[in-house]
Design a protein around this nucleic acid. Structure first.
Lengths: 235, 235
DNA sequence: GCGCACAATATTGTATACAATGTTATGGCA
DNA sequence: TGCCATAACATTGTATACAATATTGTGCGC
């Protein structure tokens, strides 16, 4: 039996769609290189191509996808050079931001961070690696938010989205995703309002991540957009 | 005699329009708060609203303009808090980028920077303060380019555009725009491949700029879009 | 004259139609 | 069979039509 159409919840906005795609990319449900056809997406979300286009342009500005003229939108495939650039930028921004966060953090903030970690562990336990990855990214964004630097937080947000693509392409499997420990230590430093230590920990955490990149590029794969994005278990 | 219509060179692309608007804002020909009507712009550039919209969305992503739903696009009016954030972000990124630039710079790069300064002086001499401001921004972007960090350069690019708005709103006139001297010193450090000094100079240059901001917000003014954007001397 | 309700207008939001371009399939020819 | 030209198709680019919303203007009652 073929499942056809079903226009979807509809009334989706450009932001909704951009978020959904962004999250799907974060969680590695959409692989680098995957084509994002406008008609496909408008069918899936039940809106016109106009809206889809707006969403795609937004993602293109974040360099999460690449729009090739007359060819369409594709999930970005950062080069190795870009990969290094992204992590170098993160190394400039995040350590000092972690320091600010440590100085600003309230108990509520710390609780929220702990909550993040808990969810991260839960996702790991259920084997949902993609979700764990997404949450570990959110952790970094949360720290930027706590630092109350919206401008910097926005930049980090974009860098983390790109990092997710980089991890999808260049991660060497040997180095197990041992983020949890680093994140735990960070929370402690932040909870203690120890700015210097938070900065230091973030710095080394990023260096760890950066050095865990590999040199050989992986090929891009095609996916069933609807299944990847809606994830409903119809077969 | 009233000058009407004249659809303009036409065949303008979204990028063309975004650049034109961006530059106009850089040069303070478009004041913060100015409304950018879609019909106005499509008339001016001779394209459909579709293209104009794409351009506006692009600028909105850079936070150069603000799009209010069902209200339209307006040149952004950064709050004082945002102003500080922008300069704090620049202080995180630019000094170290200047260091990289100093280490990477070729004689050609230095020549190009000197050329920039020359043009800046020329604009100053002809009293074209707007153009001088634009060029001094480009100077910073050029340094990021020399550092060969495209990702960071893009971020700095956006920050500088926002800085231009901030200067329009919060600049205290007393402190004369003495950028030239700081820029000269920077070029020297870069030409000597003296990374440490370049970083130091950039840092203090940014602190100078940051501390030259004022506290009282200026009101926004309306402008004749066509005249501001096309600048052709028809009266 | 002032304030409010409501109508008229203008502007943006969304969908759709058509044009331009790229991709794929087909068929002739060597 | 293999290759190229060309036609059929699919997809994106742009313009326009219509709907939804905000803004402005008008007139009535007080």
């Amino acid at each position: 039996m073929q499942t056809t159409a079903k226009p979807m919840p509809t009334n989706a906005t450009a932001d909704t769609i951009a978020s959904a795609l962004s999250q799907a990319i974060h969680e590695h449900r959409l692989a680098p290189g995957t084509k994002l056809g406008e008609d496909d997406l408008s069918d899936i979300y039940g809106v016109s191509r106009t809206i889809v286009r707006t969403a795609l342009q937004s993602l293109a500005h974040q360099q999460i996808i690449e729009i090739k003229r007359n060819r369409g939108a594709f999930v970005a495939q950062p080069s190795l050079a870009e990969a290094h650039e992204v992590f170098e930028a993160r190394e400039l921004l995040e350590p000092r931001t972690a320091r600010s966060a440590a100085l600003n953090a309230t108990p509520d903030d710390v609780a929220l961070l702990n909550d993040h970690i808990t969810q991260e562990h839960a996702a790991m336990d259920t084997g949902d690696r993609g979700r764990a990855l997404f949450l570990s990214g959110q952790f970094h964004i949360e720290i930027a938010r706590i630092a109350q630097q919206k401008t910097i937080a926005d930049m980090i947000n974009v860098l983390i989205a790109r990092s997710s693509l980089i991890i999808a392409l260049y991660w060497r499997r040997e180095s197990a995703l041992c983020e949890s420990q680093a994140h735990h230590a960070l929370i402690k430093a932040i909870g203690d309002n120890d700015g210097a230590r938070a900065e230091e920990l973030m710095q080394s955490h990023l260096v760890d991540l950066h050095s865990a990149l590999n040199l050989n590029e992986l090929p891009a794969v095609e996916h069933d957009l609807r299944a990847m994005l809606l994830g409903d278990g119809k077969r």
